[in-house]
Amino acid sequence: MTQALHQVLVVEDEPDIRAILRTLLKTAGYRVIETETAARAIVEAQSHKPDLLLIDLGLPDVDGIRVIRAVRGWSPMPIVVLSARTMESQKIEALDAGADDYVTKPFSAPELLARVRAALRRNVRGAEQVPHLDVGSIAIDLTRRQAVGPEGAVHFTPLEYRVLESLARQAGMIVTQRQLISEAWGPGKLGDTRSLRVCIKNLRQKLEPDPARPQYLLTEAGVGYRLLLPAE
């Protein structure tokens, strides 16, 4: 089982939650390292070099954001935040610091495991282009810029393809508005969230069976968007 090779570093100061995470991850086939402080988290990350870091932000010594920044200084390992902080600004701060995804407490076990799997897949893909994408009944060739659905060809604009590419590289995880705008429009348009919202609306009209209740292109309010594929 390939998944059994993956090692997860859990940084959580509440013993009960740490025990739940330990059981959940081990049952799913992961090896688990645990610690409860930021200082030990950095030491364990450097010595064990885990495949993924699962970290709370409210740690007893220093804020988990500092751990994320420290690890990002030397490692591209996937980082998933598990926190009771729900404010949009707090989520954005964690993602801007280098986290790949953000899960709020209380959490759903299946959802958390899905986020862990998605983050590990992102790490395997790295910065590689995603040549092909299946979103529901629509098959999209990102290399050739072609898409086909049940009724024939589906037209996407060059801008829509760029947004899809950015989302596809991190399928299953949050991609911030800032990152999407930077990659699709360029760094000179970082404040143009309206154009991004219009683009997402147009993509949903083409991809979603019911655009008013999206299944694949999900909004993370105030933070960004997530492309959720059947395999995620």
Rank of each mutant, 00 (worst) to 15 (best):
P131E: 11
S83Y: 00
V130S: 09
M87V: 04
V116A: 06
H132W: 11
Q146D: 13
A118W: 06
G149I: 11
A84Q: 07
H155I: 13
G152W: 11
V103M: 07
G149Y: 13
T143M: 10
L95R: 01
A118S: 15
R162Q: 14
L164F: 04
H155C: 05
R117Y: 04
A139D: 03
L142H: 05
R125V: 11
R125Q: 13
M87R: 12
R162P: 02
R125F: 05
K105N: 07
Y161H: 08
V116E: 06
T157R: 12
G136Y: 07
A109Y: 15
L142T: 09
I140P: 01
S137L: 15
A147N: 07
L164V: 12
L159V: 14
R145E: 12
P150V: 15
L142M: 13
Y161N: 05
G152A: 09
I92F: 00
V103E: 03
R115F: 02
S137G: 08
K105V: 06
A118D: 09
T157N: 06
A84T: 07
D141W: 12
E160W: 08
A118F: 08
R144V: 01
K105Y: 06
S137V: 14
G136C: 08
A147W: 07
D96G: 02
S166V: 13
Q129R: 13
S166G: 12
V80C: 02
A139P: 01
V148H: 10
E160C: 09
R144D: 14
E160G: 10
D134L: 14
E151P: 03
G136Q: 06
L112G: 03
D96T: 03
L159W: 08
V81E: 00
Q129D: 15
Q90E: 15
H155P: 00
F107E: 08
D101P: 07
L112W: 12
M87G: 08
L112Y: 09
I140G: 00
Q129H: 11
L113Q: 14
A153V: 12
E93Y: 02
T143Y: 09
L164E: 05
H132D: 06
V80A: 02
G149V: 11
Q90C: 01
V154M: 10
L112H: 09
G126T: 07
E111F: 14
E160K: 10
R162N: 10
I92V: 15
A127I: 11
H132V: 11
V116R: 07
Q146S: 14
E93D: 11
L112F: 08
L113H: 13
R121Y: 04
E93T: 08
T143R: 14
E93A: 13
E165I: 06
R117T: 08
D96A: 07
R144A: 15
L120D: 03
V154I: 15
Y161I: 07
R115A: 05
F107H: 11
L164H: 04
V130K: 04
L82Y: 01
I140K: 02
P131Q: 08
T104H: 04
R121C: 04
R117E: 15
D141A: 05
R85T: 00
A97M: 03
V124W: 02
R145L: 10
P106V: 10
N123L: 03
S89Q: 11
